[in-house]
């Protein structure tokens, strides 16, 4: 464990909690892409199946359980409890254009051709594009609530910090996982436009609205 991975995990946890609390307290999921949240639930399910097969540490297991629990709770709030506030018209990204190519890629490019490994690879590839429906929705509505931008900032920072974690692990442990690194780079690049708007607008107290 290193500082980049720890702060990355905490940033990820913060994002998940911020979103869950935002929906729960405001009793509304306006501006939130349910499709992205479903993709994240799939990502965690496919990646954390090893909860059943191997124990790494209390930290590892508890974080995985929290991530999966919060992901499904968020999907439940969006599609069941606060369904009336779900903005389906603007959440119109065709996720099949993400899941199918990512599924195919996971079968073609992976470290080992085994079910757990392919599911892990699928979850890594899917996570790198899972935020697209949410970013697409913001571009369609032309704005985002400030709390939603904080959620996105924490979510974007988590994988950015993981990139530094991989540099650290390569330098100190000689470890690297090309699949995770390439997908992590793609994931972080997708946030660049949002990071720019977040820093130049939200941090100056303005509302995030598009076109910039």
């Amino acid at each position: 464990m290193n500082i980049f991975r720890l702060t990355g995990d905490l940033s990820h946890l913060a994002a998940i909690i911020i979103l869950l609390l935002k929906i729960w307290k405001s009793r509304s999921c306006a501006g939130i892409s349910g499709k992205s949240q479903i993709l994240f639930a799939i990502v965690f399910t496919a990646r954390y199946l090893d909860l059943l097969t191997s124990f790494i540490s209390v930290y590892n297991t508890s974080m995985k359980v929290i991530y999966i629990g919060c992901a499904y709770a968020t999907v439940y709030l969006i599609y069941a409890k606060f369904r009336a506030t779900y903005d389906g018209n603007h959440d119109s990204f065709r996720v099949e254009f993400l899941v199918v190519p990512v599924g195919g890629l996971a079968v073609l490019i992976n470290h080992t051709f085994s079910p757990l490994e392919i599911l892990w690879t699928f979850s890594i590839y899917l996570e790198s594009v899972a935020i697209l429906p949410q970013l697409f929705m913001i571009s369609k509505t032309g704005e985002a609530e400030t709390i939603t931008t904080h959620y996105l900032f924490c979510l974007g920072m988590y994988r950015t910090l993981y990139l530094f974690n991989w540099v650290w692990r390569f330098y100190f442990e000689g470890f690297f996982d090309m699949i995770a690194i390439v997908a992590g780079l793609v994931q972080t690049v997708l946030y660049c436009d949002f990071f720019y708007l977040y820093v130049t607008k939200v941090l100056k107290g303005k509302k995030l609205s598009l076109p910039a």
Binding site: D9, E117, Y162
Partner: peptide
């Protein structure tokens, strides 16, 4: 193996 040690990441 490269992959196994990646398993300890979330």
């Amino acid at each position: 193996r490269v992959r196994d040690s990646a398993k300890d990441e979330l």
